[in-house]
Design a protein around this nucleic acid. Structure first.
Ligand SMILES: [Mn+2]
Ligand SMILES: [Mn+2]
Ligand SMILES: [Zn+2]
Ligand SMILES: [Zn+2]
Lengths: 137, 137
DNA sequence: TCTCTAATGAGAATGATTCTTAGGGGGAAA
DNA sequence: TTTCCCCCTAAGAATCATTCTCATTAGAGA
């Protein structure tokens, strides 16, 4: 994605455009692997050696609040950031510790149909996510 | 559960029976709410005022390794312990922060059937869990 | 350009969890 | 029963991810 595209996403999220936000968003958008804040920090330091880790945390949090990225907690308890906004599932590899995306529209609609029929009593569902643990072959 | 029952579970897990292990297992077995280690510690201190938090962590970890309890990480990144061993899903309430169990055999078999048909390429599934976020009504 | 406010950098503080170490207890063996 | 050994435990230090504080800076609009 080019600079203008990133700038638009950030400002349309209601955030002031800064150099730090620009490189941090870019790192998330380009990442394939649901990076941690620490990993984003390392990635971004080459372009911006004076950036601080606190800024990375705060910026990622602003992005989540603005709805332009997602976050979740991995099974070690560490925060992971995800530039993919659509609902999708995650594959956890026990061997490599990588987390990869699994998108399947059939699965989404299967679940939607199931929970439409089988309402959970006294509970209103906002979102459903599937965590699949296993290993790459 | 009575003391003999708990003692059997602990020793059949290959662990030496101690007073600390007994009260910690009892706390998990009686808990309805997927307690944190800290919460188990508070619970158990009344019976055993000299117990240490480190012992609670190590004991819970031994139980998990022995396969007599389960653990997972909640969406704040904190470890939760669960005396329920069968596969089941969890409901996260955004209002009360409670985590409750959702067991539905139809859902389990639906998912099993789906992933039997739709194998994920180059990935061998060990376990699937569903996280449902929403709120109690 | 000037001003105002929100963003940033640096580092301290916090919270959950793990590690280290010294002492204690219980069972096997003599 | 006594000894020996190993494992368990208590206490607190250390670690790691994350949040907070506060002084300084830099966008964006006037
Ligand atoms: Mn954590
Ligand atoms: Mn933590
Ligand atoms: Zn993803
Ligand atoms: Zn449960």
């Amino acid at each position: 994605m080019n600079i203008e595209g990133i700038k638009n996403i950030i400002t349309e999220g209601g955030l002031k455009f800064t150099h730090q936000r620009m490189v941090i968003y870019q790192a998330i958008a380009e990442a394939e692997n649901h990076p941690t804040a620490e990993r984003v920090f390392e990635q971004v330091k080459s372009d911006n050696p004076s950036i601080s880790l606190g800024t990375v945390y705060k910026t990622l949090d602003s992005f989540v609040t603005a709805g332009i990225i997602q976050k979740f907690v991995d099974n070690k308890g560490v925060m992971r950031f995800d530039g993919v906004l659509e609902a999708h599932s995650h594959l956890y590899c026990k061997k490599t510790n990588e987390i990869s995306d699994y998108k399947n529209a059939d699965l989404e609609s299967l679940l939607k149909k199931f929970f439409d029929k089988n309402q959970i009593e006294d509970f209103e569902i906002d979102e459903i996510s599937i965590v699949i643990k296993g290993q790459k072959l």
